[in-house]
């Protein structure tokens, strides 16, 4: 017995080699898509505060993050889509008021195998035909989408149904959030999707463009045409320029952080958000996302300083084809 106590004590002594003074704590949780941006900001912020403010960032998904946030368990929630009615309700019930702050854009890429020589572009209508719930068990072959494509089976890959990515894609393509066919390979881990599509000649899938950028040699991107010339003529690929200009529609989406109004009164949270909005342009680019225009960050910061509570989207969840700057200016 004594041996165990002694060995435990030794362990604790080893741990005490680094002595940390207690500090203020900012708790962040939520979307895994927004995580890299918040991680980057938190890293730089803690450096600038010389360790006097601690930040923790968790990954429980947009939905899971909102659950904790609306329970008052976190200060800031990462979200890859606007807050939904059920979540609005939960926040209201617990008296949690929130300030919605857009931080960057992300482009959802439609991806095929590099050996796929027949797909040159796809229209949103074709994507809808392929992904809508009615397609389940019916649309199984490439030539059912366009008749000159081969009579071969099509294998679908997509983001997990609990993710904000899935919610946004279904809203943008099918027209109804969280509604699609169920017979596709889904994974919360985008690298699994990359692996699947790169080893299957007849695959088609979708995920955030950062995963395409880092696997360009193994994947092929599909230009998407929304057949609306106001958003750029013809098929468009999710390149930096196209997303910034807002012509990669409907598959560009804004990413957000939500700050609890109560936490916003704390000095350290104020400093963190200020730092976030000033650094987000550069840091979001660095981790593979598309920054908002500089003027937009100023408007977002003003929104925070004015403690503007509620969602610009009226609490209805994902909306397609939004330009953050215009929405903010309208307010």
């Amino acid at each position: 017995m004594r041996k165990i106590v002694i060995s435990l004590l030794i362990m604790l002594v080893l741990l005490s080699a680094v002595i940390v003074h207690s500090a203020q704590l900012i708790k962040v949780d939520g979307s895994s898509t927004v995580y890299p941006i918040t991680e980057a900001v938190a890293e730089e912020f803690q450096k600038s505060e010389k360790g006097s403010t601690r930040i923790t960032v968790g990954i429980s998904g947009t939905g899971g993050g909102f659950k904790k946030f609306c329970n008052g368990e976190t200060d800031v929630s990462n979200a890859s889509r606007p807050i939904k009615p059920t979540e609005v309700e939960l926040c209201k019930k617990n008296g949690v008021e929130y300030i919605e702050l857009p931080v960057a854009y992300d482009g959802l890429a439609v991806i095929i195998n590099p050996k796929n020589s027949w797909v040159d572009y796809m229209t949103v209508k074709e994507l809808k035909k392929l992904w809508e719930p009615e397609a389940q068990g019916k649309i199984k072959k490439w030539n059912q989408i366009r008749s000159n494509w081969p009579n071969k089976e099509i294998h679908l890959f997509g983001a997990g149904v609990d993710s904000g990515t899935y919610d946004y894609f279904t809203e943008a393509v099918v027209g109804k959030e969280h509604s699609s066919r169920g017979d596709f390979t889904s994974s919360e881990d985008d690298n699994v999707l990359v692996q699947g599509i790169s080893s299957d000649n007849f695959a088609l899938g979708f995920f955030g463009m950062a995963y395409y950028e880092h696997n360009k040699d193994k994947l092929k991107i599909v230009p998407v045409d929304d057949e609306n010339d106001a958003n750029g003529k013809g098929p468009i690929i999710p390149e930096y320029e196209n997303v910034v200009k807002g012509i990669y529609q409907p598959l560009s989406r804004p990413l957000f952080i939500y700050v609890s109004k109560k936490s916003a009164d704390k000095q350290e949270v104020k400093r963190f958000i200020d730092f976030y909005m000033k650094g987000a342009a550069e840091l979001s680019k660095e981790v593979g996302y598309i920054s908002l225009p500089n003027t937009a960050y100023e408007l977002v910061l003003k929104r925070f300083e004015n403690r503007k509570v509620g969602s610009i989207f009226g609490g209805h969840g994902s909306q397609v084809g939004v330009k953050i700057e215009e929405l903010l200016k309208k307010e």
Binding site: L12, S16, I19, V20, T38, A42, V57, G58
Partner: peptide, 20 residues
């Protein structure tokens, strides 16, 4: 631990059990 909400980004250590 993910379920109970252990965190992914933590850039500090728990307060040392032994202090000066």
């Amino acid at each position: 631990l993910i379920t109970i909400g252990a965190l992914t980004y933590v850039a500090f250590l728990p307060t040392s059990p032994i202090s000066l």
